[in-house]
């Protein structure tokens, strides 16, 4: 009897600790996201959210489902392994809705990005001095980009 009476202050503190622990567990339950710790020390649902971000480049496989003729022609030329959107730009919107038309390419700017002459480029890569070579005439006047001639 006297034990509980003398140790009363200890039990009161023990009770406070228990209450604090329960409050901690409750707050933790509501604050920590459900998927935290699913795969590790992070929110597992974040992986799905990052995977759900929108596409801008459709990928050449998508292009080839409609433009099979161009894909076939391209196989004969040096641009065989250059994918469509490398030159034509991001066209996922066009792939989803063909009524959205891609912007016409300015070949005098585009072709030079790869083919301008520079000693820093690997030796075997075809390069030209844009001023001497054509003097500003659009490249497609002479060259066929889809079969790379």
């Amino acid at each position: 009897m006297s034990l509980t009476k003398d140790a009363g202050h200890l039990f009161r503190f023990a009770f406070l600790f228990v209450v604090a622990f329960v409050v901690f567990l409750l707050v933790r339950h509501f604050v920590v996201p459900k998927s935290f710790g699913e795969y590790g020390h992070y929110r597992g649902a974040a992986i799905g959210e990052i995977a759900a971000r929108p596409l801008h480049y459709a990928g050449h496989e998508t292009c080839e489902t409609c433009h099979a003729d161009i894909a076939e022609a391209k196989k004969a030329g040096k641009h065989e392994n250059v994918s469509c959107e490398a030159c034509h730009g991001p066209l996922a919107k066009h792939a989803n809705d063909p009524s959205i038309q891609p912007v016409k390419i300015n070949t005098t700017v585009l072709c030079i990005r790869c083919h301008a002459e520079s000693a820093a480029k690997p030796g075997g890569f075809p390069q030209i001095d844009p001023v001497q070579h054509s003097g500003g005439v659009p490249c497609e006047t002479c060259h066929q980009p889809h079969n790379g001639l």
């Binding site: 992986i47 929108p54 596409l55 990928g59 959107e85």
Partner: peptide, 18 residues
Amino acid sequence: YHRITKGLTTACCENCPT
């Protein structure tokens, strides 16, 4: 990650001409 989980390659690899 939004491309490779769908079976596509990355935007940089897709657009690398060489």
